[in-house]
Design a protein around this nucleic acid. Structure first.
Lengths: 224, 224
DNA sequence: CTCAATAAACCGACTGGTCGGCATGGCGGG
DNA sequence: CCCGCCATGCCGACCAGTCGGTTTATTGAG
């Protein structure tokens, strides 16, 4: 019943190779021959595991979407308060955007979803929901500047984060993303927090990220 | 010596048709046949005016870049202070992103510049320069919150604006862009301004935009 | 004996771009 | 005022090549 070890290995190689090619050249410019070559397998092997180029793309995007909930949970669990969760979230997500190939490709494919002729989850709305919740909790904790609407603030943050990440990607291949997030939060936190304390927040975020990295969710999920 | 009237007409039709197609489907997915059909001319006509698909794209992008300096100048001229200029700028640029086909296409082509095999101006850096200058002036006018670095603030704003605009485009075809900018500035202005006054700024921005729309730069530039 | 994969030939659709030729408009000469 | 001419502007069938995907026969691995 279960796939042979060899099969899951090949499938993984194909998926990662496809992610690399998609991340580098986008969906349309990526040819199946490119992916086949990058994966070091043959065309037959690729089409054995994935019926089409589109299927490859949605597999990557779905894998990307599935990885967020556990990460969000881990951050919330290790955060002292909701506002710290929000800030830490942007840095953690940013680092995945830069370092995790499947994420990088998934983001790009979501970006190009109109070109991929297949059903893909709508980007952004999930994040807006999560952040809206967190901002709501921050208000209940007395951390949110009075007069701010959680939903509107969440929308503003999601848009801003995406743009900052994108500009960083275009200009420096996301190498300066952390710095840019610093620059952003230096301004934005003052507008968001009831009692802004940038350096205090920075320290808290560092602690949270360290704790999350030590958490079991960062172990290889292929073990179970 | 001069082009025949017929020629400039056809050229214009082709350029606008190309902008429509590029804006809708992107550079790679847009076929020359699509553009030919949308323009209501023949392939020969298109290739008479533009040597390649790439040339079409750079023509659109260059036209887009060229339109900004006069707009920026007009806004600065009609603004009471630098900070108002900055805010008004985001709204004006946003409305062009939504309404001006050549701009819409130019923006999209700039994102996809790696796919277009031709030299195109780097996006964002020009805007960062302009905003950095304006934030510097705002500081001299005592409007900037102390401790803020103009360059960093400019980078944060450019990224944020881009993201907000993009999210609005993906979710509502930019129909709610003004609302989203409102939501953004409600937070961001508090972080930026020395003495934040959102409703006052809103009124000032409305006045500036009205004045700019009445200015001669909004007349048809084909008259001279 | 089935599952997983190789290797290479092959298909139809479609792409960006070309090319020889036709039409048209403006200009110099009568 | 008109005529004839030729560069400019435009036409559209056509080309070579690439793409995603299929099919074939063959062969290790569990």
């Amino acid at each position: 019943m279960a796939m042979q070890q060899r099969a899951v290995l090949t499938r993984g190689r194909v998926l990662i190779a496809a992610a690399e090619v998609f991340a580098r050249t986008g969906f349309l410019a990526a040819s199946m021959n490119d992916i086949v070559e990058a994966a070091g397998v043959t065309k037959g092997a690729v089409y054995f595991h994935f019926p089409s180029k589109e299927a490859l793309a949605v597999a990557i995007v779905e894998e990307q979407f599935a990885q967020w909930p556990p990460m969000v949970a881990a951050i919330i669990e290790h955060s002292p308060d909701a506002l710290t969760s929000v800030v830490a979230l942007t840095y953690e997500v940013g680092s995945r955007f830069r370092d995790d190939i499947l994420t990088t490709a998934g983001v790009r494919l979501s970006f190009e979803r109109e070109l991929v002729n297949a059903a893909m989850p709508t980007p952004f709305v999930g994040w807006v929901g999560i952040l809206q919740e967190l901002f709501g909790q921050a208000r209940r904790e007395g951390q949110l500047r009075s007069g701010l609407v959680p939903a509107a603030t969440a929308r503003a943050l999601v848009g801003s984060f995406f743009g900052i990440q994108h500009v960083s990607e275009m200009l420096t291949n996301r190498n300066d993303l952390e710095t840019r997030l610093d620059e952003f939060w230096r301004v934005f936190l003052i507008g968001v927090a009831a009692e802004p304390d940038w350096s205090g927040t920075q320290r808290a975020v560092r602690r949270v990220r360290a704790a999350v990295r030590r958490s079991p969710l960062h172990m290889d999920p292929d073990l179970d």
